[in-house]
Structures are given as structure tokens and as C-alpha cells.
Nucleic acid binder design. Structure first.
Length: 270
DNA sequence: CGCTACCTGGGT
DNA sequence: ACCCAGGTAGCG
């Protein structure tokens, strides 16, 4: 559920409504939802901080706070953030409740419980989450076909797992990787080294198109305010196993590649 | 690289 | 009753 269009949608919402707001208190309902520090220290250190911004690094959300602290959040598979009026009962999947000024609460939710938050100085966050090992971001304006060629050049094995590796390119999740390779007409088994210049360019264009369209439709899930995204049904191959390829009518194939569900057209992706 | 663990809700 | 999940870390 949480790929880059979904994460970026939430980040933009956070930037719009949370900057300048104070976190009055935080209540950790699931201790495992914290990478660090321990719940007591987390709550003690975050209380009274003002949110200075919100940005995305790969699928991490980073919120710099007053007092040289940064709150980092990762949704993993099913996590999200929801802004609600204070004083209501929290849904059972609530991991952390942030009480904000203005009688509002920011809920960190995850029905699966894999999502994680961390709090530390900016250096600590970068160091402990290995943020400087991340590859270039696919939504950054500087991402072009040359950069994609350079990043892919270092890697061996099948294209799909390489595209999912955030240290190669930050920005693709399982759905968007499958959709990008379909749009580019490239078989997910191909090795990066076997792609010619034209295919690299098509892949670059496809990645940009998939991410930008998903973002323009505000993703597939609820935004910070609980409003649903409109990208839910824009799928050509992902989870369409056996249904006709929109381009050539061949049934979409499904297999596992790099341990992940993979969907593609065996006819027109070569 | 491939595999496993994480661990709950919703789909089949 | 089962099986699976759009992500990542950690292991061999």
C-alpha cells in the first residue's frame, strides 16, 4: 500500500498543515513501533517540539523538529498517518498518538504492526537508518536516463529486484516496478547490462510517468485527512494475473522474482 | 543473491 | 482454516 506516490502524498499534506505546529505529547501504544529510543525517552524528548518541515527520502518520512531533533517514520507495507480531532477513540491499529496544538491528533497507524518510527538528531537518523546509502530519487528533477544507466550499470541479476533496491534507485515499490517495466515493454528477467540505450530511456520515461501519475492522483490510499486517493484502479499488470494485457490482449503472467510477486505480459515485454 | 522474520486483517 | 500482503533488515 505504501509506495512512493502514497508516501509523497502524505508528506505534502504534512508540509501543508503541520509545519509550525507543536507536538504537545506522544503516546506510544506499541513499543515495537519504535526503532529508537525507548518509549519513555521518545515521549519525553518529543514533547514540546515544533515541526519545522516534512520531507521524503526513498520511502522514509523525515520531520525535522525544533531542538535539533528529527522524527523519522517508515510505513513499511501498510502504515499510514492520519490527522484527526482530539478526544476520539483511536482505531485498534494505532501505534503512536501525537497530540498537537489546536485540538488535533496525528495518528501513526498500521494494521500489520511493521511500520516504524525513530527519533534522534539529524546525524543519528542518517547514520542509523543508513540514509546516505540510498540511491538517487526517481522523483527528483535530476533523475534522467544517464543517471539510470549509471545506477543500473553496477548491478547484476534480474532487472526487477535491482529496481526495487533503494540503494540503486530510490522510489520504486513492487507495484510501480511492475507497472514501469510493462510501460517500457521490458521483461523483468532481463539483466540491466543487456538493456540498450533505447530501452534505458524507455524505462526512465516509464518510471517517471508511473510515479508522477500516481502522485497526481494522490496515490491509492487515504491521505493525511482520510480522503481516498484516485489511483487505485490505474493498473495495467499489477495483480491482474490472467486478465488481458491492455496492449496486446495476452493473459498477464504471474511469478515470483526476488521473492516478490511479479506481474508482466509475456508477449509484449521483451 | 535467496531466504526468513516481522505478525494482523482481509480475501478466498 | 488458511493464505497472503505494495517493505526492509539480517542471515548464510
Amino acid at each position: 500500500m505504501a509506495e512512493v506516490p502514497e508516501v509523497e502524498t502524505i508528506v505534502r499534506d504534512l508540509r501543508e498543515v503541520l509545519v509550525g505546529r507543536e507536538i504537545l505529547a506522544a503516546e506510544v501504544l506499541l513499543a515495537a513501533a519504535l526503532r529508537f529510543p525507548e518509549p519513555g525517552e521518545f515521549s519525553a524528548r518529543i514533547a514540546g517540539r515544533v515541526v519545522l518541515g516534512a520531507e521524503r527520502r526513498a520511502k522514509h518520512i523525515l520531520m525535522p523538529l525544533s531542538g535539533d531533533l528529527t522524527l523519522a517514520i517508515h510505513f513499511m507495507l501498510w502504515g499510514t498517518l492520519l490527522l484527526v480531532p482530539a478526544g476520539h477513540r483511536h482505531p485498534p491499529e494505532t501505534l503512536i498518538v501525537f497530540q498537537l496544538d489546536g485540538e488535533q491528533e496525528l495518528l501513526f497507524l498500521d494494521k500489520l504492526g511493521y511500520a516504524r518510527a525513530a527519533l534522534g538528531t539529524q546525524d543519528e537518523i542518517v547514520e542509523r537508518l543508513d540514509l546516505d546509502l540510498l540511491g538517487p530519487d526517481a522523483l527528483d528533477p535530476s533523475f534522467d536516463a544517464d543517471l539510470l544507466a549509471r545506477q543500473l550499470g553496477k548491478r547484476r541479476g534480474a532487472l526487477k529486484p535491482v529496481l526495487l533496491n533503494q540503494r540503486v534507485l530510490a522510489g520504486l515499490g513492487n507495484r510501480d516496478a511492475d507497472e514501469s517495466m510493462w510501460l517500457a515493454g521490458i521483461d523483468p528477467h532481463r539483466t540491466p547490462a543487456s538493456l540498450d540505450r533505447d530501452q534505458i530511456e524507455r524505462l526512465h520515461d516509464a518510471i517517471c510517468q508511473v510515479l508522477e501519475e500516481g502522485l497526481a492522483l494522490r496515490g491509492t490510499q487515504a491521505d493525511l485527512f482520510g480522503r481516498p486517493g484516485r489511483a487505485k484502479h490505474r493498473r495495467n499488470v499489477f495483480e491482474r494475473t490472467g486478465q488481458p494485457c491492455p496492449r496486446c490482449g495476452t493473459p498477464i503472467a504471474h511469478l515470483r522474482l526476488g521473492g516478490r510477486n511479479t506481474h508482466y505480459c509475456p508477449q509484449c515485454q521483451t
